[in-house]
Design a protein around this nucleic acid. Structure first.
Lengths: 112, 112
DNA sequence: TATCGTTATTCCTTTTGATGAATAACGCGG
DNA sequence: CCGCGTTATTCATCAAAAGGAATAACGATA
């Protein structure tokens, strides 16, 4: 039936009580926070406005059983952003299921 | 770690040459077209504007290797909309991988 | 030829979302 | 006590999407 390339595609995220909690964008943000130590720089590094990044962190911290990111304002360097242990655990968990998802999609694409 | 309910959630669709082709909304529209025989009624039955439904059908028909929906204007009843054989095949295919996707998500949710 | 209910298309309004600018608050260090 | 760079927050503006209204086109039927 084909000449064109048919593929199964999708998006995956984690919900808490039915509310959006962690998707690929937020995970990328968390990773950048971990490596850069600054929310502003993390946002800039992925072409995200600071405000959007800030609200994302707030939403994550409120939804999670414990905060994923610790934000400090003032002090040395003006402030900092750090991933908590809970944050690191969730990043790792997401990466695992995201990897399984890639496998799933390639498997389903074989149907066509 | 829990009191709150963590679940893996997601969306699944089919792409053709990297472009969005069939998602759950369009599949629902196709099903309603099949059962009602009218694009206008199919759109109304799922709270969709006629225009949006019409453009969705146009997009699908252009992307697909063969049209999924046949539209006729004028004549008995004013016109009609019918699913083609190709359309029925794609609906069935989508439903199968969508079912697999549900299984996948429940499996991944067990991680939490 | 007039009727009818649908398909086909355009236009305008509303609404939602994204974006950037601007500014306050903070606390360590000089 | 002032400067610095960050976090924290509000405001206004612009773009994009959504929605509804209105109307033309169509062809079997009577």
């Amino acid at each position: 039936m084909n000449e064109k390339k048919l593929t199964a595609a999708g998006r995956l995220w984690i919900e808490i009580d039915g509310e959006n909690f962690l998707g690929s964008g937020r995970i990328e943000l968390l990773e950048n926070i971990e490596s850069l130590g600054s929310l502003r720089q993390a946002a800039a590094s992925m072409g995200l406005s600071y405000r959007k990044a800030y609200y994302a962190v707030r939403s994550m911290n409120e939804l999670a059983p414990a905060p994923l990111v610790e934000l400090r304002q003032g002090g040395k360097g003006g402030g900092c952003a750090m991933l908590t242990e809970t944050g690191r655990v969730f990043v790792e968990k997401y990466q695992k299921i995201a990897h399984q998802f890639v496998i799933f999609l390639t498997k389903q694409s074989a149907v066509f």
